[in-house]
């Protein structure tokens, strides 16, 4: 399943790159793209575990950039 989420207060381009790198390491994520300019995250992950993966992604984002929120 592929879904796109808006990101709020993503203020640093390098953080976006770090977030992308961290999320791509989550098991079950096929592809992820965090666009600093569009303030969007597109995530392609396994259907049956999608919600868990998303939760994990939110956690990782909070660790890297606490100001930034993923709007689910």
């Amino acid at each position: 399943m592929k879904k796109t989420f808006p990101l709020e207060d993503l203020d640093c381009a390098n953080c976006a790159a770090k977030m992308e790198h961290a999320i791509s390491k989550i098991d079950g994520v096929n592809e992820v793209s965090v666009s600093f300019l569009m303030q969007r995250m597109t995530i392609d992950a396994d259907d049956d575990r999608f919600d868990d993966i998303l939760k994990e992604a939110v956690k990782k984002c909070r660790r890297i950039e606490p100001d930034c929120k993923i709007k689910l």
Binding site: T4, N14, A17, K18, E20, H21, S33, S35, L37, M38, R40, T42
Partner: peptide, 20 residues
């Protein structure tokens, strides 16, 4: 348009890798 930014170019990938 929204997906346009998610297709990253080689130059962008090089730069993010370099930054790491």
């Amino acid at each position: 348009v929204e997906h346009a930014a998610s297709q990253k170019s080689k130059a962008e990938n090089f730069i993010t890798k370099f930054a790491r």
